[in-house]
């Protein structure tokens, strides 16, 4: 395995497989109407959920960069 994959494969796997599950979850709760985008409160929660995914994505990305080059 190349050095690049050695370092980045866990990150890609985490946000690839985890991201697919997250996406399925978002689609399911929206399609089922449980997350009802007509309600103001639910639109807020939709934004929080998307924010959370990228919050952890960016955190892991920056931490990996720091570990490698800082």
């Amino acid at each position: 395995m190349s050095e690049f994959l050695e370092i980045w494969l866990p990150f890609i796997y985490l946000y690839g497989v985890g991201g697919a599950l997250f996406l399925i979850g978002m689609i399911l709760v929206r399609k089922s109407g449980s997350l009802n985008m007509k309600l103001k409160r639910h639109r807020y929660w939709f934004r929080v959920l998307v924010f959370g995914y990228f919050y952890f994505f960016i955190f892991h990305f920056l931490f990996t960069i720091a570990g490698l080059y800082w």
Partner: peptide
């Protein structure tokens, strides 16, 4: 790594 299941939990 708990965030992936939050849509399922919060709205399921």
């Amino acid at each position: 790594n708990d965030w992936f299941f939050m849509p399922f939990f919060l709205f399921g």
